[in-house]
């Protein structure tokens, strides 16, 4: 019965042209990824024609020591830089939200700078800076990741700051006053009232920062040494000698990791869960 009625003024979901448009958008966005994943199971050296199903390239990727090392590097860099930039970004956000001080507009501008500055410029700048500071090449494996990590923190903590600040903007200041009024100290108020409020912003900011770090190419390319390749840089060097399904397989794994992280973050943020944990 209700299917017969014509679509209402705001019933956009029921208009045919809009549905087609939506479909086209999804195809445009996801077809490359679907093809990438599909061809990781292709039993062929070349990535052009479908030859049959296989998982041998996953095994090959797993056995490729340098690829695995790059993957590990990427995870380490992402984990460390995300933790650092979440803390730094949150602190900056709270400072900008909470206090009034003379150089505040300047600091706000400086905060946005790493976001708008072209990555290539930042990569070169960091390269020059690190080589002047003697941080490049001289260090062995785990410490050699330091410049990459610092670089990633530099460009990702402003994103965290922006996300957390947006969350803080909706905070009711009287909650803070109520907490003080009830006898809590400034620290207790921060810990029990403000921090729980910031949590969704912190999770979103950390997720953003991890994603940015995992797939960053340009800045990493300039700041990593030969022994400290990350996953995207390694893939790039592999692709230069022809895209094998091994690359597809490795990329599929990366997509999976990102997907799992996103699902976890969404689960953590869902209101139903927030209620049972608090």
């Amino acid at each position: 019965m209700s299917r017969r009625s014509p679509p209402g003024p705001l019933d956009y979901g029921r208009r045919l042209w809009l549905r087609l448009w939506l479909l086209a958008t999804f195809v445009f966005l996801y077809a490359p990824i679907v093809i990438l994943v599909a061809f990781s199971f292709n039993d062929s050296r070349r990535n052009i024609v479908w030859q049959g199903f296989t998982t041998k390239y996953y095994i090959a990727a797993w056995n490729n020591a340098s690829l695995l090392e790059a993957f590990t590097n990427s995870l380490i860099v992402a984990a460390v830089s995300t933790s650092l930039s979440t803390v730094l970004g949150a602190m900056l956000a709270v400072a900008l939200w909470r206090f009034r001080f003379p150089a505040k507009p300047l600091l706000e501008g400086a905060n946005a700078l790493p976001i708008v500055i072209p990555e290539i410029c930042m990569g070169v700048a960091l390269l020059v800076f690190f080589s002047r500071a003697g941080l490049l090449a001289s260090l062995g494996w785990p410490l050699g990741l330091l410049p990459v990590i610092l670089g990633h923190v530099t460009f990702s903590f402003p994103f965290v700051a922006i996300v957390v600040r947006a969350r803080l903007a909706t905070f009711d200041r009287s909650l803070e006053e109520a907490s003080l009024d009830l006898g809590a100290s400034e620290w207790q108020t921060f810990r029990y009232i403000l921090l729980p409020w910031m949590k969704p912003g912190l999770v979103a900011g950390a997720l953003l920062s991890a994603t940015l770090s995992l797939d960053d190419f340009v800045i990493t390319f300039f700041t990593s040494g030969p022994e400290t390749l990350t996953f995207p840089v390694k893939i790039y060097s592999m692709v230069r000698f022809g895209a094998t399904p091994e690359v597809n397989a490795a990329s599929t794994v990366l997509i999976l990791v990102t997907l799992i992280m996103t699902v976890l973050a969404m689960r953590l943020q869902s209101p139903a869960r927030a209620e049972t944990t608090q």
Binding site: S174, L175, E177, A178, L180, D181, L182, W197, Q278
Partner: peptide, 24 residues
């Protein structure tokens, strides 16, 4: 400071902590 005064306040917006149960 406000947290040491023998005074408590009921705010216009109530300022009930949204992430805590009534008891908490």
């Amino acid at each position: 400071p406000p947290n040491r005064r023998p005074v408590n306040m009921v705010f216009q917006s109530y300022a009930v902590f949204p992430h805590m149960s009534v008891r908490r």
